[in-house]
C-alpha cells in the first residue's frame, strides 16, 4: 500500500507519515496547497506538485472543515478514481456547517441536544419557547460561529441578540447541559475517550482531561454519528451521551498520553484493514483503463 498524507502543514502530517513508514508502508506528505484539480473534456485530473497521484493507492487527509469548497471536489475525484480516503464525499460540507451537522445527525437517529436555528434575531424569545433554558446561543457570520454565550433566561437571550450589531447569517440555540464533555477520537470502530470537566461553564483543555471508558450505548451513538457524517477518522465531543460536535481534523498529542495508546499506529492498522478493498479497486481501475484503450479502437462499440 502507498499512502499520500495530505495535510495543510508538515507539522500536522509528520507523525502520521512516521507511523506508516514504521509499519513498512510507503507514505509521503504533500501540502494540500500543492494539489490542483483540472477538468477537461470527459475527465478530471488530480495534479500534484512534485509527485504523481498514480503512485498512491490511498489518501490520509487532514484539513480543516472550512476548506470544504476545495476538499469536496477533491474527495469526489479521489473516490471516483478508486482511492481509499478517511473522509467520504459530503463529509466536509457536513462538518463545516453546525446546524446542517445537527440536522443530518437528528434525521439519522443520532442523539443530539435539542437545537433551534433561525436566520433572524427578531422574535428570538418567542422561538426559544420551544426549547428549555439554559441555552448555548451562537451567532454566525458566514458559516463560522462569531460569538457564543450561555443564556439562562429570555432576558439574557434578548440582550445578547440586541448586542450584535454586525450582519450575521443567523442564530443557533442549543440546550446547554452542564456536564463534563467527553472528547473522543474515532478510528474505524475504535473509540478513545477523554473526560473533560467544566469549571464555571468552561470546558478544561484536553491535557487537563482524564481517561474515560465510554459506555457501549454512547460508543454506538458516536460511531453512528461518524458514519452519518462520513468520517472513518474523526474527533467527536459528547455531553451526557449526546453528540455536540464532530470534526475531521484530529490532534492526538494529549489523547495518546491520557489513553495510554498509540493512535497513529491504530490508524495505520485501520488503513491496512482496508488493503483488500484498495486492491480490488486497483484491479477495477486497471480494467477501466483496458476498457478505455479498447473503446478508442475498432472494438470500441463493444466497450461502451
Amino acid at each position: 500500500m502507498r499512502v499520500l498524507v495530505l495535510a495543510e502543514k508538515k507539522k500536522i502530517a509528520e507523525n502520521f507519515v512516521k507511523a506508516f513508514l514504521e509499519k513498512g508502508i510507503t507514505a509521503k506528505y504533500l501540502r494540500l496547497s500543492k494539489v490542483m484539480l483540472v477538468s477537461k473534456k470527459d475527465k478530471t485530473e488530480i495534479k500534484l506538485v512534485g509527485s504523481n497521484i498514480d503512485n498512491f493507492d490511498a489518501v490520509f487527509l487532514q484539513a480543516r472543515s472550512s476548506l470544504a469548497p476545495f476538499v469536496e471536489p477533491l474527495l469526489e475525484e479521489l473516490t471516483n478514481q478508486g482511492f481509499y480516503v478517511n473522509s467520504k464525499k459530503g463529509s466536509y460540507y457536513l462538518s463545516d456547517n453546525e446546524p446542517y451537522t445537527f440536522v443530518s445527525l437528528a434525521i439519522n437517529n443520532v442523539k443530539t441536544p435539542k437545537t433551534l436555528t433561525s436566520g433572524s434575531g427578531k422574535n428570538i424569545e418567542r422561538v426559544s419557547k420551544n426549547i428549555s433554558y439554559p441555552l448555548l446561543v451562537k451567532s454566525f457570520v458566514g458559516k463560522k460561529a462569531q460569538q457564543a454565550i450561555i443564556a439562562n433566561n429570555g432576558k439574557e437571550l434578548n440582550s445578547f441578540v440586541k448586542s450584535i450589531k454586525s450582519d450575521i447569517e443567523g442564530f443557533m440555540l442549543r440546550e446547554y447541559i452542564d456536564e463534563p464533555v467527553i472528547s473522543c477520537i474515532v478510528v474505524g470502530d475504535e473509540v478513545f475517550s477523554v473526560k473533560r470537566k467544566t469549571k464555571d461553564q468552561v470546558v478544561v483543555p484536553i491535557d487537563k482531561g482524564e481517561y474515560y471508558k465510554l459506555p457501549d450505548s454512547d460508543k454506538e451513538n458516536v460511531l453512528n454519528a461518524t458514519k452519518v457524517i462520513g468520517l472513518d477518522i474523526a474527533k467527536v465531543d459528547l455531553v451526557k451521551g449526546r453528540v455536540i460536535s464532530i470534526e475531521p481534523n484530529i490532534n492526538l498529542k494529549n489523547f495518546n498520553k491520557i489513553c495510554s495508546a498509540d493512535i497513529e499506529s491504530r490508524i495505520v492498522d485501520f488503513y491496512l484493514s482496508k488493503e483488500n478493498e484498495i486492491k480490488r479497486k486497483s484491479i477495477f481501475s486497471e480494467l477501466k483503463d483496458i476498457r478505455s484503450i479498447f473503446s478508442k479502437t475498432i472494438f470500441g462499440r463493444f466497450f461502451k
Binding site: 496547497s33 494539489v35 484539480l37 483540472v38 477538468s39 477537461k40 470527459d42
Partner: peptide, 28 residues
C-alpha cells in the same frame, strides 16, 4: 453554487464543458 464542481461533474459524465482548474494557493 461552485463553478468548478459543476464543470467537474458534467465533464466526468461526458457533457461538453470548458477546461477548468481549481486550487487554493496562488502559487499554482
Amino acid at each position: 453554487n461552485h463553478k468548478f464542481f459543476t464543470s467537474q461533474i458534467l465533464s466526468n459524465k461526458g457533457l461538453p464543458g470548458v477546461t477548468s482548474t481549481f486550487f487554493i494557493s496562488s502559487k499554482r
